[in-house]
Amino acid sequence: MLKRFTELSTPLIADACVRLGEPLRAAPAGILPVLPGRRLAGRVLPVRHYGSVDVFLEAFTTHAGAGDVLVIDNGGRRDEACVGDLAVLEAGAAGLAGVVIWGLHRDTPELVEIGLPVFSYGALAPGPVRLDPRGPEALRTARFGEHLVSAVDAVFADDDGVLFVAADRVDAVLETAEGISRTERDQARRIRAGETLRDQTRFEEYLELRGRDPEYTFRRHLRRIGGAIEE
């Protein structure tokens, strides 16, 4: 999954979901990699954080598989960092591909040195001082913004953000994203060669057809002529 994603991007994954009619499950804006340019893809290893690192260690011991991505639900909190260098080192030792946090991290220089992809809202020095009661869903599901994810989901992340896709639809989404990517690369090449996007998408023809039929959308037009820019 990660190997195929290295040639793609989250915008392409999002467009593929739209084209296939898959739910578009994007993390809230602002979740970015600690080290710009890093990409991440893998099965979701969900964890809900209650103030202690023990829930991460239990997930690594009882639920983790090689290449999984630790997806941490810290409620989007901005008043504490829930992951630091030791937790990330341990994630790497457990064979995980990376960490995605609905919240904050700390120990930024150490995380950069470790190199395992970590995505979060950003850095904050204080760790948690609370210890909340642990719920029964601690290792089963994670809330990430408005979305609920679990081990039946995959996660994709890069500089443009984070997306979740049902694991059994990943192959179809990746195949569609690859097709969109090929089309867009060809369109970019042709623009650089002097053929405008308006010419490529037969935009004047689109305006004429829309004038005849107000229900004729640009997205429908692109699908008819085989173009790509919106999805």
Rank of each mutant, 00 (worst) to 15 (best):
residue 147 H to L: 03
residue 119 F to K: 05
residue 75 G to Y: 07
residue 222 L to Q: 11
residue 101 I to K: 00
residue 69 V to T: 09
residue 62 T to F: 12
residue 42 G to V: 01
residue 209 L to E: 13
residue 182 R to G: 11
residue 57 L to E: 14
residue 45 L to T: 00
residue 213 D to M: 11
residue 227 G to M: 03
residue 209 L to W: 09
residue 218 F to V: 01
residue 17 C to M: 08
residue 204 E to G: 11
residue 63 H to N: 14
residue 89 L to Y: 10
residue 11 P to D: 02
residue 174 L to F: 12
residue 210 R to S: 12
residue 1 M to K: 11
residue 208 E to G: 12
residue 231 E to D: 15
residue 178 E to P: 04
residue 156 F to T: 00
residue 69 V to M: 08
residue 203 F to A: 07
residue 121 Y to K: 08
residue 181 S to F: 06
residue 142 A to W: 02
residue 27 A to I: 06
residue 45 L to N: 02
residue 213 D to V: 10
residue 114 I to M: 04
residue 50 Y to G: 09
residue 129 V to P: 02
residue 171 D to M: 05
residue 127 G to Q: 04
residue 47 V to R: 02
residue 133 P to K: 11
residue 147 H to M: 07
residue 178 E to N: 05
residue 24 L to E: 06
residue 172 A to Q: 09
residue 16 A to Y: 00
residue 54 D to P: 06
residue 130 R to T: 15
residue 124 L to I: 09
residue 89 L to A: 14
residue 132 D to E: 15
residue 80 E to P: 00
residue 8 L to F: 04
residue 117 P to T: 03
residue 156 F to P: 01
residue 161 G to Q: 03
residue 169 R to N: 10
residue 95 G to L: 05
residue 54 D to M: 13
residue 164 F to D: 01
residue 159 D to I: 00
residue 230 E to K: 06
residue 105 H to G: 11
residue 175 E to D: 15
residue 118 V to K: 07
residue 38 R to Y: 10
residue 108 T to D: 10
residue 154 A to Y: 11
residue 186 D to K: 14
residue 150 S to I: 01
residue 58 E to F: 08
residue 54 D to G: 10
residue 215 E to H: 14
residue 5 F to T: 01
residue 51 G to M: 03
residue 186 D to C: 08
residue 207 L to H: 06
residue 145 G to E: 05
residue 71 V to D: 01
residue 27 A to P: 02
residue 42 G to L: 03
residue 96 L to V: 08
residue 198 R to E: 15
residue 16 A to F: 00
residue 155 V to C: 04
residue 7 E to R: 13
residue 21 G to W: 00
residue 55 V to A: 11
residue 86 L to A: 12
residue 110 E to Y: 12
residue 18 V to S: 04
residue 16 A to K: 02
residue 157 A to G: 05
residue 113 E to W: 11
residue 157 A to Y: 04
residue 80 E to Y: 08
residue 167 A to V: 11
residue 19 R to Y: 09
residue 134 R to E: 12
residue 37 G to F: 05
residue 69 V to S: 06
residue 101 I to N: 01
residue 158 D to L: 10
residue 43 R to V: 08
residue 205 E to T: 14
residue 17 C to G: 00
residue 86 L to Q: 13
residue 128 P to S: 14
residue 111 L to G: 03
residue 175 E to F: 07
residue 36 P to S: 12
